[in-house]
Design a protein around this nucleic acid. Structure first.
Length: 612
RNA sequence: GGGGGCGUAGCUCAACUGGUUAGAGCGCUGCCCUGUCACGGCAGAGGUUGCGGGUUCGAGCCCCGUCGCUCCCGCCA
């Protein structure tokens, strides 16, 4: 079977006379010479030379040049004069190879052109409000592109992204099918739960005062699928979270959600390793070496200052606490005396960073909780320029020199604080400095697993929250810590990271109702609350729940990284703005008072907004 | 909720320190043009400088507010 450059097999062969087109605009080659063809598409450009008119006809598959010469057909030439950009056209003509000097090597179809004998304007078009050439459209303000998204999506670049997204979804489905997974759809109208993000709520007409929630993920359903004995479940599932947006966060997004029974974490790692390798291949990238690298959470935080380490470059955090034990430098001595740490990164080549840059980084370090940002500039002659080195002993200087491998041109940035604060601050600075120093290579795909996440963390109210979610199994060695030292307990939880972006994560779940109850109690949930919120899960686990676990991958982020986009908006057909608006549909919008009455909603808005 | 950036013709941008009639390229319209593929040439139309208020003899420019888009923190896996 012939496979086209666009990746789609050529399954269709038109011959019926009712068909509007015989070929697509990306298909014709010199071997089609002499054939009479029909093409349909949009006028990409119209170049009218007076006597001779060129129209580049465009569809999803490519671009084909059609010529209209009055000697071929006076009527077609007359009609072609009316064509304008983005008109929808159907042309009839004869495929003709181009003489060597007229071949357009930039076009897949550049070896031929169509000598047009008839043209039909299927639809006229207003001039588009912004240019549809990729190079120009990339600079157009995004709100305009979003308002006319159907035009933005005509661009080759956008179509490539959507096609690749489809290819990736297909690769994932094929892979999981080959691994005995079955795709199961779970409800979109479901129940609100207290953990996690803010829910999108949907009022119930037939149950006054009650609300569904849109799922933040199909988490509970997929676990219940395991209790049901489905063994291996997956779903390419839409998820909803009512939180503020980012370049990589939309209010609705898509997860590759999966769950399996009778497994260990190793089974998940190798399963997802294979899946990601297939995704890379489907995206036209080389398959990564397997198994993908792994590091424990403690190492990610300690060396990269992040739970989603960007392993494309070094500049790792170096712990200098032991070197400065007993130092005369009061700032370090005080921190160390209180059980804190002194850590540093070597921002290679950035000794010449402007004071403005250093000031900006200092501001950022303070936002991260640091008291200030100490630094050393290593001068071209190897000497150190710094407000703090005068406090260092010779031994301390020698130790720094050796551990940080300080070379002329280097900039050393110090953080002295509680370990979590120092890691977080240096982790952020590392990313900025790495970018500033151009240390982050293009076109590299650095995957890593982060394993052994903590089970709990302290929340703003001083209580405990699940790092992952409350069904996450503790590490078997750490079960007793749930009551005695919950913050020290590790979880059987893991994230998979690509280039510093969290692609997804998951865990082995608790399948024992007793252990699950202990975990809920550690979170400070009352027995009554456990029953109303999670009673169905506890009940289910009493009926023979198998050991199970799983993971969810952010499909939007995965596709974004595969196509090299900066935002998941670029790989979504119809994304929302930062204020969660759909500018094309103008959603959300006000609704009729009667609709509100039906669902028992009464608005009590500030006076300024009382229309509607 | 907080901090930063942006907002001038359909699009992308320019407009000195606040100073006369707000310009350019692309696009659009008309005419000319038979080998272009970023076609070319000539002519032309097109502006509530996001919106509201203020300062000033005078505001695209300064101040206050507001709206929209965007990046980040908080929030969110």
């Amino acid at each position: 079977m012939e496979v086209h450059k666009n990746g789609f097999s050529n399954r269709w062969k038109w011959s019926g006379e009712k068909m509007m087109r015989t070929h697509t605009c990306g298909e014709l080659r010199p071997e089609h010479a002499g054939q009479t063809v029909n093409l349909c598409g949009w006028a990409d450009t119209v170049r009218d030379h007076g006597g001779l008119i060129f129209i580049d006809l465009r569809d999803r598959y490519g671009l084909t040049q059609v010529t209209f010469d009055p000697h071929d057909s006076q009527a077609a030439w007359d009609a072609a004069q009316a064509a304008r950009g983005e008109f929808v056209l159907r042309v009839t003509g004869v495929v003709q190879p181009r003489p060597a000097e007229m071949v357009n090597s930039k076009l897949a179809t550049g070896g031929i052109e169509i000598r047009g004998t008839a043209i039909e304007v299927l639809n006229r078009a207003l001039p588009p409000p912004f240019p549809l050439e990729d190079a120009k459209a990339a600079k157009v303000s995004e709100d305009l592109r979003l308002t006319y998204r159907y035009l933005d999506l005509r661009r080759a670049q956008m179509q490539r992204s959507l096609v690749l997204r489809h290819k990736i979804s297909q690769a994932i489905r094929n892979y999981l099918d080959s691994q005995r997974f079955i795709e199961v759809e779970t409800p979109i109208l479901t129940k609100s739960t207290p953990e996690g993000a803010r829910d999108y709520l949907v009022p119930s007409r037939v149950n006054p005062g009650c609300f569904y929630a849109l799922p933040q993920s199909p988490q509970q359903y997929k676990q219940l699928c395991m209790v049901a004995g489905l063994d291996r479940y997956f779903q390419i599932a839409r998820c909803f979270r009512d939180e503020d947006l980012r370049a990589d966060r939309q209010p609705e997004f898509t997860q590759v959600d999966l769950e399996m029974s009778f497994l260990t974490a190793e089974d998940i790692y190798s399963l997802i390793d294979g899946l990601l390798a297939d995704v890379m291949e489907a995206s036209g990238h080389p398959r990564p070496a397997l198994p993908l690298p792994r590091m424990p959470f403690s190492e990610a935080m300690g060396r990269y200052g992040s739970d989603k380490p960007d392993t494309r470059f070094g500049m790792l955090l170096t712990d200098l606490s032991d070197l400065f034990t007993g130092t005369q430098f009061k700032v370090f001595a005080t921190v160390l005396g209180q059980g804190g740490v002194v850590k540093a990164i070597n921002a290679k080549t950035l000794a010449g960073a402007s004071q403005g840059t250093i000031d900006a980084w200092t501001t950022l370090a303070k936002e991260a909780g640091l008291g200030g940002l100490a630094y050393i500039r290593v001068q071209p002659d190897g000497s150190w320029k710094s407000p703090i080195v005068k406090f260092f002993s010779d031994a301390e200087k020698a130790g720094l020199q050796e551990r940080l491998d300080m070379q002329p041109g280097d900039l050393i940035l110090f953080a002295a604080d509680k370990v979590d604060v120092a890691n977080l601050a240096l982790g952020r600075l590392r990313l900025l400095a790495g970018e500033e120093a151009k240390l982050i290579p293009e076109g590299v795909f650095a995957f890593t697993w982060v394993t052994d996440f903590p089970l709990f963390e302290r929340n703003a109210d001083g209580g405990l929250t699940s790092v992952n979610h409350p069904f996450t199994a503790p590490h078997p060695d750490d079960v007793p810590l749930i009551e005695t030292a919950p913050l020290k307990a590790r979880a059987l939880a893991y994230d998979v990271i690509l280039n510093g972006v969290e692609l997804g994560g998951g865990s082995i779940r608790i399948h024992d109702s007793e252990l699950q109850a202990r975990a809920f109690r550690a979170l400070g949930l009352s027995d009554e609350k456990i029953k109303t919120m999670f009673g169905h899960m506890i009940d289910a686990f009493k009926f023979g729940a198998p050991p199970h676990g799983g993971l969810a991958l952010g499909l939007d982020r995965l596709v974004m990284l595969m196509v090299g986009a900066d935002s998941i908006r670029d790989v979504l057909a119809f994304p929302k703005t930062q204020k969660a608006m759909d500018l094309m549909m103008n959603a959300p919008d006000k609704v009729d008072a009667r609709q509100l009455r039906d669902i028992w909603i009464q608005l009590d808005l500030p006076a300024a907004d009382e229309e509607a």
